[in-house]
Write a protein that binds this DNA or RNA. Structure first.
Lengths: 234, 234
DNA sequence: TTCTACGCTTGACATAGATCAAACGTGAAT
DNA sequence: ATTCACGTTTGATCTATGTCAAGCGTAGAA
């Protein structure tokens, strides 16, 4: 029992959001945490559900998304280990503004709202951490809105590829960690359109496809021009 | 001198974000606040500028917007009296993710970052207020992203009109507080498209235009259907 | 190995909405 | 009252992207 607790406390303490929290506070958190595992494709919460707390991904990955009446999906985020999600209702009241689903087997911690708010009241650094999380998310949304409203799909795709490349220390060799269908949904489009654009980019010598989830950037500058709108696909 | 200070303190204390703060803390804030007036059309900050603090609208209105390379504008927010803006860089570091401009003569308070962060560390309720502000903004962005990605312009316009109506205790008589060009930019489109859609809605008996900034909802249910995608304009 | 399912690709087509250009109104300034 | 500028409207046209339908490939199940 004690061993299990210590293990939980360590897991809690390793969450970036809780960086700087005292051991005691981590213990308190570990006491109230709800630890569960979701399988691939399993729903975690739906838009409109009441939010009585928030979640943190311990392992696996979770997508946050919106659905149109006709069933088209727009992915807002994909969160991995250590990232919190579903915090909006904790502070703004009301309900979840989007859906959450595990895209692979995922272990998720749930923290009930009230105890968490108590903790924030006592811990300015926790408050600042949370403010930073929300601010970064706002920044990200700002970019997404800009993309959706002001840019075309080839630009968004190019920006995404460059982003991937940067995350992989600028390697020109990219491995997609999601399906192309999901990528389409992140970019705010549909698989058919994505496929066509990838084909055009290949034809123009910008990239080369090397297997279903593997591609190589051949002309980085060209892709950059595409990303910023300085170049167009013919 | 003292009178002027007291006047400032009262203004500061009346900002919703600072609700619940002690008089002393409001005094501290009043000591560090920078009070300025921007004229209609004047830039407050630009995307990419360094953010060393955040702002609050005291009077007037401010638009936060993004610009495409070709000059198309997407309005993210329009803020009025009492509303804070430009907080993202305070907590997430880095720079402003968008532009801010006064759309009418506006009085703006500026609060430097460091003193404000100090204050947050001492005031859990201020932290919670700020968390609520950011959370509400995230929720709003979620809706905007959904609209831009998953809905068509007539739906967004209808939703906007219903929202206006709700804000006006469900009156069917609406007065736009912004130009149609600005409204187009809020909806993520251009004046021409907005004009055409307004015309169609008029032709279908959903609304009637009564002067340039005044319109009436004739068929509320029809507009609601349009907003949720259950009906289409022919 | 063969079968099956699902993700991906491709083609033909439809359409919402952007662009370009021009005319129109209206309100503010002279 | 007249002028001017700017917001708005309108029409003609263009294009990016969505829709529908069919075919393809591959990975995993049987």
């Amino acid at each position: 029992m004690k061993a299990k607790n210590m293990y939980l406390v360590n897991l809690v303490a390793s969450i970036p959001l809780f960086k700087g929290l005292s051991l005691e506070h981590c213990r308190n958190l570990a006491d109230i945490v709800v630890d569960s595992v979701f399988s691939r494709g399993q729903n975690i919460f739906s838009e409109g559900d009441e939010g009585n707390g928030f979640y943190v991904v311990i392992s696996g990955r979770v997508k946050i998304y919106k659905l149109s009446p006709e069933g088209k999906e727009q992915i807002l985020h994909i969160f991995g280990s250590g990232e919190p999600f579903g915090e909006v209702p904790v502070f703004a009241g009301e309900r979840f503004p989007a859906h959450a689903e595990a895209i692979e087997e995922s272990r998720i911690f749930f923290f009930p709202r009230d105890s968490f708010v108590e903790l924030i009241k006592k811990n300015p650094s926790l408050a600042l951490n949370m403010l930073a999380v929300l601010s970064r998310r706002l920044r990200k949304f700002t970019v997404l809105i800009e993309d959706l409203s002001l840019k075309e799909v080839p630009s968004r795709l190019s920006a995404y590829l460059l982003h991937m490349s940067r995350a992989n220390n600028k390697s020109t060799d990219l491995v997609l960690d999601i399906s192309k269908g999901q990528l389409a949904s992140i970019l705010g489009t549909i698989p058919e359109t994505l496929s066509r654009i990838l084909k055009k980019m290949t034809k123009e010598g910008l990239i080369r496809s090397e297997g279903t989830r593997h591609l190589r950037i051949l002309d980085r500058e060209g892709v950059e021009d595409l990303a910023c709108g300085a170049r167009k696909l013919t």
